[in-house]
Design a protein around this nucleic acid. Structure first.
Lengths: 192, 192
DNA sequence: AGAAACCCTAAACATTTGTTATCGTTCTGC
DNA sequence: GCAGAACGATAACAAATGTTTAGGGTTTCT
């Protein structure tokens, strides 16, 4: 639980006692490759902090096609945060792409933090803000960049992604088909 | 300043005195049609709350093409929030599409609120969360819905948008060209 | 080790979407 | 009220991207 303490302390000031109490309400879990951390259609009851490993966030459209909407790696908080906040059935599923270890933060612990950590609400604000900034950058890229440019830029956001996720998931993340990504790679003087 | 008081009170509990003090640091401003509330490249120093009117958020890509990335209407908070948080030059410009009135909340007032409102941090968290939820729904739509479907759904998010924004801005928002939107309208048994 | 599943590439073809240009209409500013 | 700009529709053509199918190489599982 050392990594999450450090991550929290990068955002707020908190005593050891405060962190102990917060983390007492959390647990550590391991997941196998391809295992789901959380499924679509169920109301999410927790937020995850990834200690080790990589996962993808999957959205299924009405026709059943799956889209890889996000990746998340070590030292990131991740969840279907919208559904968590709204207490609605989730749209996203979270799937480990490697053996993965995560801190599971149940809603009870998070609410305890808001209420009892001196800077609990601030922590919540900062997490929401950082996550917001990430989504905003996604939208900027989707609007203002071509698939080719997005491909060239992806490794800056997710280091080593090309060795940690299969290409068809990367293609989906970029908003194109695997076939098309293969073409792009062939055509461009790809950097990778 | 009645509307913003109400909006804040939908999120947190605050006394009249608290709101008075917060709003003392804010100001009311009117903008003409097409006037910019804030420009790209400048570090944003404020957040806006729209009393009346509609605006769009514009992102310019490297080639200079402008994209309408968001709309915002009455009773919404709006800003280039990422740039505001990061204190970086903005990527977005905000442009009034109608004569518009907004409460201008400078950074000083916001920080005062975080520090002195009893539930200031919580307010910040909730604003970030709601804004986050909106962006998340944008991303879901961009991935899992066709342009046609996005067109059919837009009026649910922005009521009466078809009478308040020209079609080429709506097309840009949907991620397609005006010509293509015109085609879609002709083809589909459009609802509008 | 062997079978099965997975993954990437490739080619041919189909579809969607973009580009450019034109035209008539409607706003807008003077 | 007029002149110019903005706006939306349309057509012809071009480019980007998707679909389907096939093959061969890996990885995975037992």
């Amino acid at each position: 639980m050392q990594q999450i303490r450090q991550a929290i302390r990068q955002m707020i000031h908190a005593t050891d006692d405060e962190l102990d109490a917060l983390l007492r309400g959390c647990s550590l879990r391991s997941y196998q490759r391809r295992e789901l951390l959380s499924e679509a259609q169920q109301t999410p009851g927790e937020i995850f902090f990834i200690n080790q490993g990589i996962l993808r966030v999957i959205a299924a459209d009405p026709s059943g096609t799956e889209h890889t909407v996000h990746f998340a790696m070590e030292h990131q908080f991740i969840a279907d945060y919208s559904s968590f906040i709204l207490r609605q059935p989730s749209v996203y599923a979270l799937q480990a792409l490697e053996p993965l270890e995560a801190v599971v933060m149940p809603r009870s612990a998070i609410e305890w933090g808001y209420a009892h950590l001196r800077e609990g609400e601030k922590l919540g604000r900062l997490i929401a803000e950082y996550y917001f900034i990430y989504l905003d950058s996604r939208i900027k890229n989707l609007y203002a960049r071509s698939p080719r440019e997005r491909y060239d830029a992806i490794a800056a956001v997710f280091p080593n992604i090309h060795n940690r996720a299969p290409q068809h998931m990367i293609a989906s993340y970029l908003g194109i088909t695997p076939v098309h990504l293969s073409r792009l790679k062939k055509a461009g003087a790809g950097k990778f």
